[in-house]
Measured scan of single mutants.
Amino acid sequence: QEELVKAFKALLKEEKFSSQGEIVAALQEQGFDNINQSKVSRMLTKFGAVRTRNAKMEMVYCLPAELGV
């Protein structure tokens, strides 16, 4: 569980995922086979993730800066 949270936060820091499906796929690539869209959705809510525009003006998920991840 701890490893999943770390990987999840690291992915969001990249600010390149525009959908929950993309986050699920990226986590599965890292070996988290039991991850699915509903789990990702709950984690996004739990950590207060928001959708914002990145440098390329794409809408992407990211974590609020005050979490200091």
Score class of each variant (00 low, 15 high):
55 A>T: 08
20 Q>E: 15
55 A>G: 09
1 Q>T: 12
31 G>L: 02
39 K>W: 14
43 M>G: 00
26 A>M: 06
23 I>M: 07
34 N>L: 08
24 V>K: 04
41 S>N: 10
23 I>F: 08
47 F>G: 02
55 A>K: 08
69 V>H: 11
66 E>M: 07
39 K>P: 01
58 E>I: 08
65 A>K: 12
61 Y>M: 02
41 S>E: 14
12 L>Y: 01
14 E>G: 06
46 K>H: 14
11 L>S: 02
58 E>Q: 12
13 K>C: 06
64 P>H: 04
60 V>F: 04
46 K>G: 08
30 Q>L: 15
59 M>R: 04
17 F>G: 03
54 N>E: 02
9 K>D: 03
33 D>C: 10
55 A>S: 13
25 A>I: 12
2 E>Q: 11
27 L>G: 00
15 E>Q: 10
22 E>T: 05
54 N>R: 03
61 Y>W: 15
34 N>D: 13
59 M>P: 06
47 F>D: 01
22 E>Q: 15
1 Q>V: 11
31 G>M: 02
14 E>W: 07
64 P>M: 04
10 A>S: 11
67 L>W: 05
67 L>H: 13
53 R>Q: 13
19 S>W: 06
31 G>S: 02
24 V>H: 03
23 I>C: 02
36 N>G: 07
9 K>C: 13
5 V>T: 10
27 L>I: 02
30 Q>P: 00
32 F>W: 09
46 K>A: 14
45 T>N: 11
1 Q>E: 15
57 M>L: 11
38 S>L: 11
8 F>H: 01
25 A>N: 09
5 V>E: 15
55 A>N: 09
14 E>Y: 06
41 S>M: 10
66 E>G: 09
46 K>V: 12
33 D>G: 13
15 E>S: 07
40 V>T: 02
36 N>Q: 05
29 E>D: 10
19 S>H: 09
16 K>I: 08
33 D>M: 14
69 V>L: 11
33 D>L: 13
35 I>Y: 01
37 Q>W: 07
55 A>D: 11
15 E>A: 13
68 G>V: 11
57 M>H: 13
6 K>N: 12
41 S>A: 14
22 E>M: 11
10 A>P: 01
65 A>E: 15
52 T>E: 07
53 R>N: 08
14 E>V: 06
49 A>V: 08
52 T>D: 05
30 Q>V: 07
3 E>W: 08
40 V>Q: 00
22 E>K: 08
65 A>V: 11
42 R>K: 14
32 F>V: 01
31 G>I: 01
6 K>L: 12
43 M>I: 04
28 Q>N: 08
1 Q>K: 11
69 V>T: 13
62 C>Q: 09
47 F>R: 01
64 P>T: 05
23 I>D: 00
13 K>S: 10
28 Q>W: 09
45 T>H: 14
20 Q>P: 14
17 F>A: 04
23 I>Y: 02
21 G>S: 13
46 K>C: 09
36 N>E: 06
62 C>A: 14
14 E>M: 15
13 K>R: 15
43 M>H: 01
24 V>C: 05
69 V>N: 14
37 Q>R: 15
52 T>L: 10
54 N>D: 04
34 N>H: 11
42 R>A: 15
6 K>R: 12
32 F>Q: 01
40 V>F: 01
50 V>R: 09
15 E>P: 09
59 M>D: 07
38 S>R: 14
62 C>W: 07
58 E>W: 03
68 G>A: 10
61 Y>Q: 02
38 S>T: 11
63 L>D: 03
61 Y>C: 02
2 E>N: 11
47 F>T: 06
68 G>H: 11
36 N>C: 04
48 G>Q: 07
45 T>I: 14
53 R>I: 14
44 L>H: 00
47 F>S: 05
58 E>A: 05
6 K>I: 11
42 R>E: 15
28 Q>L: 13
43 M>D: 00
33 D>F: 13
57 M>K: 10
35 I>C: 02
10 A>K: 10
25 A>Q: 13
8 F>N: 00
57 M>E: 10
7 A>H: 06
42 R>H: 13
34 N>S: 12
60 V>Y: 05
65 A>M: 12
29 E>P: 01
12 L>R: 00
6 K>V: 10
20 Q>L: 12
5 V>C: 15
1 Q>W: 14
65 A>H: 11
33 D>I: 14
55 A>E: 12
10 A>W: 07
24 V>R: 04
15 E>H: 10
1 Q>M: 12
41 S>P: 00
66 E>A: 09
29 E>A: 14
42 R>V: 13
37 Q>V: 13
55 A>H: 10
39 K>I: 15
60 V>W: 03
64 P>I: 05
30 Q>Y: 07
34 N>T: 11
49 A>F: 04
2 E>H: 12
19 S>R: 09
8 F>E: 00
24 V>M: 09
64 P>A: 06
48 G>T: 02
10 A>V: 07
68 G>D: 14
56 K>Q: 12
36 N>A: 05
68 G>T: 09
27 L>H: 00
21 G>E: 15
51 R>C: 15
41 S>K: 14
16 K>E: 05
29 E>K: 11
61 Y>D: 01
17 F>T: 03
16 K>M: 07
68 G>I: 10
42 R>I: 13
32 F>R: 01
11 L>W: 02
13 K>I: 10
20 Q>S: 12
51 R>M: 15
28 Q>C: 06
3 E>C: 15
20 Q>F: 09
37 Q>C: 06
27 L>S: 00
37 Q>H: 12
19 S>M: 06
33 D>R: 13
48 G>V: 03
66 E>K: 07
35 I>M: 09
28 Q>G: 05
8 F>I: 06
17 F>R: 03
50 V>A: 07
61 Y>K: 02
20 Q>Y: 08
20 Q>A: 14
45 T>G: 08
53 R>A: 09
49 A>C: 05
43 M>L: 13
64 P>L: 04
42 R>G: 11
11 L>I: 08
21 G>F: 12
17 F>N: 02
63 L>N: 03
30 Q>H: 07
13 K>T: 08
32 F>C: 01
14 E>P: 02
54 N>V: 03
52 T>R: 15
44 L>G: 00
19 S>Q: 07
15 E>I: 05
53 R>T: 10
43 M>Q: 01
8 F>A: 02
56 K>D: 13
20 Q>D: 07
54 N>K: 03
6 K>M: 12
14 E>Q: 14
9 K>R: 10
11 L>K: 01
47 F>C: 03
29 E>T: 09
37 Q>K: 15
13 K>G: 08
47 F>Y: 12
66 E>L: 06
47 F>N: 04
10 A>C: 06
2 E>C: 15
23 I>Q: 00
42 R>L: 13
10 A>I: 08
10 A>Y: 07
23 I>L: 13
17 F>P: 03
38 S>A: 14
34 N>C: 10
30 Q>A: 11
44 L>Y: 01
43 M>N: 00
68 G>N: 12
50 V>L: 07
18 S>C: 05
4 L>K: 01
56 K>V: 07
46 K>R: 11
30 Q>T: 04
32 F>N: 01
12 L>G: 00
33 D>P: 14
16 K>S: 08
29 E>C: 06
28 Q>R: 14
68 G>R: 06
61 Y>T: 02
5 V>I: 13
39 K>D: 15
4 L>C: 15
63 L>G: 02
44 L>Q: 01
24 V>F: 05
2 E>G: 10
50 V>C: 14
31 G>D: 02
59 M>K: 05
